[in-house]
Each structure stands twice: as structure tokens, then as C-alpha cells.
Simulated scan of single mutants.
Amino acid sequence: MAKSAGVAIGYLSERTGLAVSAIRYYEAQGLLEPWRNAGGQRRFHRADIRRLSFIMIAQQFGFSLPEIRGFLKTLPGGRTPTPEDWARISTSFRDHLDSRIKTLQKMRDNLDGCIGCGCLSLPKCRLYNPQDQAAQKGKGPRYLMGDSPETGKTPEKGA
């Protein structure tokens, strides 16, 4: 199947509001796969407008470029993604967002209490985390990361 004429990087920049340098950076990071026409000019699929829009939104939600690359790798190469392709990626994206929302809500609700960080600087911390028991569960703010002081449960990796 022959490639369409594609669109120029300037067109993508105009449509998405991204600088040409940002689009080139995303290409270098493996988020876009343009090709070169007979004149050596970089060409993109029109569907890359949607990919770039997804990248911009995902970054606003705090996803790293490697995480975004993981989402985009599930989309088909060589053809424009269908609505079904985008629905599949949105399910995975939604699961990750739900996990982040849960963590943010927990942080908001417990910010003034013990977060299991091991600082033991407040009298309250000595009650909720005696002898820094949270440290046995791993590094970081264990209770905000999903560990429970009551049950000893630890969060699943990647959750």
C-alpha cells in the first residue's frame, strides 16, 4: 500500500499549537513515526494530530514520556487508528488515571496526619508509626503509597 502524501511538520505545529522543535523532540522519543518523501522532507500521518493531542493531555495529567510511549505503542502502525483502537487505549489510560486519583485523594485526606514517611518528628507519628514500622514495608511514604498500618498490606507493583 502506498503512503499518502502526508502532512508537513509545520501543519502539525499549526493544528496542535506545538512548536516544531517539540514535535521533533517527540519524534526523537519514539512517539511519532514520520517518513521522508522523495524530496527528503519529513511527512506525518494526519492521525498524528490526534497522537500529539493525546501526548499533550497525558502530560497535563502528569504522565511521563515513557508512560505515554507505552500507551501509544498499543496503537497500530502504518494506518490511522480507528475509534476502537482509541477506545482500547482509553481503557488503559482510565485505569492509570483512576489509580492516580485514588492516590491524590488519599494524600489530600491524610496530608495533615501520618503518611508513613518515617520522619517520626511529630508526637502523632510515634502513635501511628511506632519504631518506624512503615520502613519495613519499603521506602517512601508507605501509607500514602497504599500500605496499611493495620493490615500490613503492601500495594501491588505498578499500582
Rank of each mutant, 00 (worst) to 15 (best):
T103D: 04
G118T: 04
A5W: 12
E156H: 05
A47Q: 10
G116Y: 10
L75P: 02
L127R: 14
L144C: 10
S64N: 01
I115K: 13
L65C: 05
G39K: 12
P149W: 05
T154A: 14
D112W: 14
G77H: 03
R126F: 09
C117N: 05
G152D: 01
F54T: 00
I23P: 00
N110D: 14
K153F: 02
F54V: 04
F63C: 00
Q41K: 08
G62A: 08
A19W: 05
T82C: 04
T91R: 10
A8D: 14
T16Y: 07
A135R: 15
G152F: 00
T154P: 05
L144E: 05
Q41A: 10
E67V: 07
G78I: 03
K73V: 11
P34A: 09
P34L: 01
L52K: 01
I68K: 01
I9W: 00
Q60I: 04
L122N: 06
K153I: 10
H96A: 14
Y25Q: 00
L127D: 07
G77R: 14
G62M: 12
P155F: 05
Q29E: 13
D85V: 00
G138C: 04
Q60P: 00
G30E: 13
T151I: 02
A134L: 06
D147H: 05
R88V: 07
E33M: 11
G152K: 02
R79A: 13
A135G: 03
A38G: 09
P83C: 09
L32S: 05
T151R: 07
G40F: 03
A8F: 04
G152W: 01
A19Y: 03
L12F: 12
P34W: 08
S21R: 14
K153D: 07
K124F: 05
Q41C: 03
Y143S: 00
A135K: 15
D109N: 15
V7G: 01
T80C: 11
T91D: 11
L120E: 14
M145K: 06
R142T: 08
S99P: 08
E33W: 08
N129Q: 14
K73P: 04
Y11V: 15
E67K: 12
D95H: 13
P130V: 13
P141V: 12
M56Y: 03
G6K: 01
Y11S: 08
L18T: 01
R69A: 12
L122E: 10
K102I: 03
R69N: 08
G39Y: 02
A28C: 00
I89T: 09
L52E: 07
R79Y: 06
G39A: 12
G62Y: 11
C117I: 06
